[in-house]
Nucleic acid binder design. Structure first.
Length: 112
DNA sequence: GTGATGACGTCTT
DNA sequence: CAAGACGCCATCA
């Protein structure tokens, strides 16, 4: 159709991120693909940076495909994201990355 | 409308 | 998989 963007891709990204259950993590590419643009993974991170705290988005549950967390400057405190994830039961490897094999979010049709 | 930006991903070394 | 370079693509100035 001529109007594929109901509001903006960011809006869809926010909606998807909000559906990530606690104790699970999703990748930027995963969110981007669900939003309709598999190649727009960067925009997912951009959307997180522009996200407002009032939206209460679990942006700390969004990581890259390597399991590495966002840059330190992205959160209030350098290890704030890691702290939140550990509080939800996320396990980290010795190299400081998340064990995606164990905590990667598997979106279902009803979740979208 | 053009150019620059960037919380990524993939390829190559 | 580590580190660097290029590409992608929506948003911002």
């Amino acid at each position: 159709m001529t109007t594929p963007d109901l509001q903006s891709f960011f809006a869809r990204i926010y909606r998807l991120v909000a559906k990530i259950p606690a104790g699970r993590v999703a990748t930027y590419g995963q969110i981007a693909a669900l939003a309709g643009s598999p190649r727009a993974a960067r925009q997912v991170g951009y959307a997180m940076a522009r996200a407002k705290a009032e939206w209460q988005l679990p942006c700390h549950r969004v990581v890259n495909k390597l399991g590495a967390l966002a840059p330190e400057h992205a959160f209030d405190s350098p290890d704030w994201q890691r702290f939140l994830l550990q509080q939800e039961g996320i396990t980290f490897l010795e190299n400081g990355r998340i064990n995606l094999k164990r905590h990667l979010w598997q979106p279902e049709a009803d979740q979208i």
